[in-house]
């Protein structure tokens, strides 16, 4: 399967990467090779087979709906960001 430059750009956009032209080209080649490899599943017939999304054996784990003390408080979490103001995380303008 050939991956076009438009498709690479679309995947970069979905992934939120500002790829350089050079990077887009080399990732495009890599992705093509990987997709070629994973496409070998085409030769299998899976009609009537149920998918498995997870292998955990339990259905549900319940806990009482109570507020528990947390390891990290607001100050500690805010301290991890680059910029903060009035207990909020500050980012550059949206538009």
């Amino acid at each position: 399967m050939k991956i076009t430059r438009e498709e690479i750009n679309h995947l970069a956009q979905l992934s939120n990467f500002s790829l350089s032209d050079e990077e887009a080209k080399s990732l495009g080649t890599d992705l093509e090779n990987i997709i070629k490899y994973i496409s070998q599943l085409d030769e299998l017939d899976v009609k009537g087979v149920e998918p498995t999304y997870q292998v955990f054996e339990m259905e549900n784990v319940w806990r009482p709906d109570e507020i528990q003390p947390q390891e990290a408080d607001r100050e500690q979490l805010l301290a991890l960001t680059k910029e903060q103001q009035d207990n909020q995380i500050k980012v550059p303008k949206v538009l």
Binding site: E50, Y53, V55
Partner: peptide, 14 residues
């Protein structure tokens, strides 16, 4: 073609 199919093959592997 990819994700759903893979999860079905996963069942066969299990």
């Amino acid at each position: 073609a990819y994700y759903l199919k893979a999860q079905k093959v996963r069942t066969l592997i299990i």
